[in-house]
């Protein structure tokens, strides 16, 4: 490990590649993470309905009704994504960047997830899923836009699943409005998810909805080869065959795009929350 990183207690819990592109500690503020929204023309009504309400992120100090505030993993505030209290509701937050070299990139974060503590019961399967995705496009003379998605399916209906998934296909593109200049496609639907060849991973839930344990996640992508290389969550390391990703022809105004998004989806008519203590993106550039 790079000794400069090891000497900094905030960074020594990460394993960054040679250059840190961004390091977002949410004690410092919202740091470029905004609500995801669909494309529209003339009216918000022209948006694909799935994109109409993806909820604004917020800064949370993890205050619980029974024990007060826990704060974040390191400090007071974490980025919080909160779905609506409606089965299948998604909250999605995105950070939009561009890259300057098609090398390897690596995302690391510390996260936790919980249902809203609105009932005095275990609530283990109330969060359906959370995930992270990249939305990428080649730079000069682009051939492809491509989108690695990694999802932890916690539960589906009443069944616990506790497995990681990837996605190889998006939905059909739709024309938005009447100018012919705007299109949209929804890529976070429930279809086309495939299990990663990795074992069941039961993440510590810790018995009641007001206790959070922080987890580590690392995701690796190769921009040059357009490969979704693998990931690590706590002590589960996946370094097998490259994972499937969505791939579509390059689009007119997205060159060098390097977007990162997180989302959480509820499994019941109850809010689901994803908290991020900190997010670090590093790379070979």
């Amino acid at each position: 490990m790079n000794l400069a990183y090891a000497a900094d207690p905030r960074l020594s819990r990460f394993d960054p590649l040679e250059r840190i592109f961004f390091y977002d500690d949410f004690d410092e503020g919202i740091r470029g993470w905004s609500e995801l929204i669909g494309n529209y023309e003339h009216s918000l009504d022209s948006m694909l309905p799935e994109y109409s309400d993806m909820r604004p992120p917020m800064l949370s100090n993890l205050t619980m009704w029974d024990t007060g505030a826990a704060g974040s993993m390191e400090g007071t505030y974490a980025l919080k994504l909160a779905s609506r209290a409606r089965t299948g509701s998604l909250a999605t937050s995105i950070k939009r960047q561009t890259f300057r070299k098609r090398g390897q990139i690596q995302l690391e974060c510390y996260f936790t997830f919980k249902p809203e503590a609105s009932e005095l019961r275990l609530s283990l399967n109330d969060v359906r899923a959370f995930g992270v995705l990249f939305d990428l496009q080649d730079g000069m003379n682009p051939e492809y836009r491509w989108m690695p998605h990694l999802r932890y399916l916690n539960a589906q209906d009443s069944e616990m699943v506790n497995r990681w998934q990837m996605k190889g296909e998006t939905r059909a593109f739709h024309n938005i409005g009447d100018s012919g200049e705007t299109v949209s496609h929804f890529h976070l639907g429930s279809e086309n998810w495939e299990f990663v060849d990795a074992p069941v991973q039961t993440l510590a839930y810790n018995e009641i909805a007001t206790k959070m344990n922080w987890h580590y996640l690392r995701v690796n992508v190769d921009l040059a080869e357009r490969r979704f290389l693998g990931f690590q969550c706590n002590d589960l390391v996946y370094a097998g065959e490259p994972l499937k990703h969505i791939s579509i022809p390059a689009m007119p105004n997205l060159n060098c795009m390097l977007n990162t998004a997180f989302w959480v989806e509820t499994n019941r008519d109850k809010r689901a929350f994803l908290y991020l203590d900190s997010v670090l993106l590093s790379g070979e550039f």
Binding site: E35, L44, P56, P57, M58, S60, N61
Partner: peptide, 26 residues
């Protein structure tokens, strides 16, 4: 520091309404 959250967008209100909870302790 400052931040603006759009807590409802293109939402139709009839009868009773409530916006989603928003954390802003900071």
């Amino acid at each position: 520091r400052s931040y603006t959250a759009v807590v409802e967008r293109n939402a139709l209100w009839q009868g009773d309404f409530a916006t989603e909870p928003y954390e802003a302790a900071w």
